[in-house]
Every structure is written in C-alpha cells, then in structure tokens.
Design a protein around this nucleic acid. Structure first.
Lengths: 124, 124
DNA sequence: ATAAACCATGGAGTGGACTCTAAGTCAAGT
DNA sequence: ACTTGACTTAGAGTCCACTCCATGGTTTAT
C-alpha cells in the first residue's frame, strides 16, 4: 500500500505519516527496492495504533517510547505494561474531566434554551 | 483576592492568568486604585470557567468568542447557545474517542499482565 | 528609608505536533 | 527521449498555548 493510499484510508496526511516514521511513533516502514514505502499489514497495524492513541491525546513522546520498548523485545514487557498503566491513568482522568465539562455545558445549554423560549435568562 | 492567591487556589500560573485576561479568555479583571488585580467573586467564576473548559481541551479561541458574545449582552444568547452546542458535539466525540482508546489499552494491559505471569505474550 | 516581596506591562522565547518547501529520484505514458 | 506525477529527504516554517524576561511601580516589614 502506498503512502497515499494509507493517508486516504486513515485520514492522516502523508506528511504526518512520514513524520511519524521519522521520529519513531511507528517503526520503520517496509520499502520496495527503490526505497519507496510499501505499507504491509504490520505497518498498517502500527498506523492504526498511532492514530488511535494520538486522537485520544497521548503525547508523541510516549508513543515513541512504546515503540522503542517494543523493538527491544520481550525483556521490556513489564516496562511496556507500566507505560500503558500510566497512560491509562491519564486517560481516565481526562475522560472524567470531559464528562464534568460536558455537564457544565449541558447546564448552560439548558439555561440558554430556556432563555430563548421565555426571554428570561436564569443564572448567567 | 490577589493574582497569587488565585493562582494557588486554582493551580493556574500567574502568567497564564494574565495571559487569559490579555487575550480575552476571561473578561478584564477588577483592579484596585493602583492598577493591581483584585479578583472579585465574578472574576473567580470566570477563572473557574476558563479552567474547566481548557482542561477539557476547548480551544482558547472559542473561549474568547464566548466571552465576547457574553459581553455583548442578551442579543447574543442564541449565538452563545449554538457555540455551546457545537463544543458539546466536539467534547462528546472526544469523550467517545478516549473511551475507545481506553478499551484498546485495557486489552493490551491484560495481554501484558498475562505475559508477565505466564511468560507467554499472546497477540502482539 | 531601604530592602524584600509582590505586582505590572510588552514582547520575546519555548515545546509540541505537525505542515510546508526545495531539490532530487523514479516509474509510466506518449 | 521527455514530460508528468508520485515518491524521497532534510530542513525550515507554522500554530497553539503558554512561559519567561526585562524593566519598572507598589506595598510591607524592619
């Protein structure tokens, strides 16, 4: 699969894909004889991984660390585990924070909808 | 309340508080005769608002827009309503995305825990 | 009354995550 | 043979959200 096809499939720009490979967010991508990227199943799995993690806000640096550990093989399993558990904590906190903000926004929306209907704005 | 006290109360740096006022994430803060900020109840409400919204990831620009609308008074109520509804959509999407990522991470954690116990890593 | 601590401003600097540009390589079509 | 278009790299540029800095005013304690 060419970089263009991958870009279209995952809605990630070609520049970003190259950037991810360059800094190590994904491992080195398979190339053909002339040095052009030809993404294999395995490479796509990593793209998907990167996309998922980044869209939840995990820092690029953390993904790089994960890939590094992964490439060092089985001796890093417990390190990978603790990295994941750490990130899990952050995400749960973030998840909770968004929920709180949603509640706040929902309350405001209710007030404004009431105001639009009755012309009276109650509480800010 | 001085800027330092506000900073400590909300865990927002004094620089960030000044920045928020400067760009309009919060309205102009009450000052004493010599021009020094003296946060009132109302000002604190805005700080809290800014903190909550920012920690969920709403862009600074959106908060500025909201404050602008707010200061233009009741004629902007429906504009504020639609701004909030738009942001609500984004947050719900983000909330969902994080949930998905958490599930993915939880699965990996389970695999790695199994690997640590049994020495066998199943699936990636 | 003078030092120490706190506050102010405008503007420059930083870090993260891309995003763009220039210059070059390569394969396919006419 | 030559143009076209997709690919390559290294490196510069951009955007966002702070964060730091220099310089100077104000308040408080001794």
């Amino acid at each position: 699969m060419t970089i263009k096809e991958v870009s279209e499939k995952y809605h990630i720009s070609m520049d970003t894909l190259r950037y991810y490979e360059r800094v190590g967010v994904i491992p080195k991508v398979t190339r053909n004889e002339s040095g052009i990227r030809d993404f294999q199943e395995e490479d796509l799995k990593w793209v998907e991984h990167a996309k998922c993690m980044r869209s939840a806000g995990l820092p690029v640096e953390v993904l790089i660390e994960y890939v590094n550990l992964f490439q060092r093989g089985d001796e890093t399993i417990s390190a990978r585990l603790s990295l994941l558990m750490e990130q899990r904590e952050c995400l749960m906190e973030q998840h909770h924070q968004i929920k709180e903000t949603l509640e706040r926004i929902d309350y405001k929306i209710a007030c404004y909808q009431e105001a639009v209907k009755t012309g009276k704005l109650i509480w800010k």
